[in-house]
Design a protein around this nucleic acid. Structure first.
Length: 458
DNA sequence: GAGTTTGAAACT
DNA sequence: CAGTTTCAAACTC
């Protein structure tokens, strides 16, 4: 990912003298996690209102965070209010647009941030029942004329359970955020979304306004999120490491999958919202050259007896790997090579990947493989009318399932549902997904209406 | 962690 | 279309 050093600094353990007595120190175990934007706006700001919402995205990096930890552990840091750049750089709320800021964006602002007392953080947490959210800080407009409208800055964290007793608070200092917490550090993801609202009560209002929006579909009004945003870190796609392609070639997995780079270690990345125009051009160029680009090259449902629309568009061309290394795209996709392949000495046959892609796992599970519990479900024998095919629970299906469940859980949180109802909603969503997966795997038409079985759960 | 190998994508 | 180069990831040491 391209960009500047982080705007967020994580206070290290108690070995560092705290510059401010109110700042607690903590033993920090940085876990870089993907960003999640939980907050959703159900209503558009009125035209007359002046910037009712502002989204601020700060992009720290793992290495830089760790470096900052080292630095701040030995240095006294002057704590001053953090200063955002002029509001020109913080665009009015646009539900589907993110604004990426880096540390340089925080100069000469008319907005500053101050920490929220823990008691207030707790109060709001109790209001919103956030299992996945954490930390609030108040945004204090520097201009006295604006000071009447005290604003809330909400820091949204990954979908990790957060014990309220391990709460983080935000401290600001010059161009840095200080995030600190008792216990393990939670807010360490490379992309931290700060949502700024003008009205301190609007968190509550906003949640209330969303009570009717419970759905696994994301509203078009919502802050832009991707499926990957919601996935637990172990299921996230791999970050790319591109150095020369600007992530605008098919060399880049992110680009090839039609995704913006996120949490990547790439250099000079143009595969992001800041370079949308360039990215669009690159996509057009790539499609011109290869109309099948951005489509799955391998079939998703191997071994099915019914024709699949995602049969491989091309085969592999392996010469030395016997199609038994991840160099081989067929092997990587856990599907046997087909007549479309031009491979030499292929050992990635129908038998070798069946059942349960035994060869794949036994030949040494790659360290980066994102195997899910669902991948481990034994699946043997050819598919029949009543048995689902092998490989149904591939990564895409698993990710989609996990995403649906996470979205459901987050909607429950937003709607302030109690634990029991939340669990029930998630279970129902799981049932719905499983039913759809099985139906799809059996090649049956997608169910449009709920069955009696579905209704029994309600 | 550095260097090598590999095969897909890009280029000529 | 074929050959070559570039690229990023996988792999090895």
């Amino acid at each position: 990912m391209s960009g500047n050093p982080p705007s967020i600094v994580l206070l290290p353990s108690s070995s560092s003298p705290s510059p401010n007595p109110s700042i607690q120190t903590a033993n920090v175990h940085p876990i870089v996690r993907p960003p999640i934007i939980l907050h959703q706006q159900g209503s558009q700001p009125s035209a007359s209102s002046s910037i009712p919402f502002k989204n601020v995205i700060v992009r720290p990096y793992r290495d830089s965070i760790q470096q900052a930890l080292i630095t701040t552990s030995t240095t006294n840091v002057d704590v001053k209010p953090i200063v955002l750049q002029s509001s020109d750089n913080i665009e009015p709320h646009q539900p589907n647009k993110r604004i990426a800021l880096d540390s340089s964006d925080f100069n000469n602002s008319n907005i500053s941030f101050s920490a929220v007392p823990k008691s207030e953080v707790m109060t709001v947490l109790q209001q919103t029942q956030p299992v996945n959210t954490l930390s609030l800080a108040k945004m204090v407009p520097q201009s006295p004329s604006n000071s009447t409208s005290f604003s809330t800055l909400r820091l949204v964290t990954p979908s990790t359970f957060v014990n309220p007793s391990e709460m983080s608070t935000i401290k600001t200092s010059g161009q840095q955020f200080f995030l600190q917490q008792r216990g393990n550090l939670v807010i360490t993801q490379p992309l931290v979304t700060l949502q700024v609202q003008q009205d301190s009560n609007s968190v509550q209002k906003e949640n209330n306004s969303n009570t009717n929006t419970f759905s696994t579909e994301q509203s078009s009004n919502n802050t832009r999120t991707t499926c990957a945003d919601y996935l637990p870190v172990q299921y996230q796609r791999k970050p790319c490491n591109c150095t020369k392609s600007m992530c605008l070639k098919l060399y880049c997995d992110c680009f090839a999958n039609g995704l913006n780079c996120q949490n990547c270690a790439c250099l000079n990345c143009h595969n992001d919202t800041r370079h949308e125009e360039e990215r669009t051009k690159a996509i057009a160029t790539t499609l011109e050259r290869n109309p099948n680009a951005f489509k799955s090259k391998m079939y998703k449902f191997a071994n099915t007896i019914t024709p699949q629309p995602d049969r491989p568009l091309k085969g592999c061309n392996c010469k030395k790997s016997s199609c038994h290394k991840r160099y081989c795209e067929c092997y990587e996709s856990r599907v046997p090579c087909t007549s479309l392949c031009k491979c030499i000495g292929c050992k990635n046959t129908e038998q070798s990947v069946h059942p349960l892609n035994v060869g794949f796992y036994r030949s040494g599970q790659p360290k980066t493989t994102t195997q899910t519990p669902l991948d481990q479900i034994p699946r043997t024998g050819p598919p029949t009318e009543t048995t689902i095919p092998n490989n149904v629970f591939n990564m895409e299906v698993t990710e989609a399932l996990a995403t649906c469940l996470l979205v459901t859980g987050q909607q429950c949180e937003i709607n302030q549902m109690n634990e029991l109802d939340s669990n029930l909603a998630i279970l129902k969503e799981f049932q719905r997904c499983m039913h759809q997966i099985v139906q799809s795997a059996l090649g049956r038409p997608r169910k449009l209406k709920k069955t009696k079985n579905d209704l029994d759960y309600q």
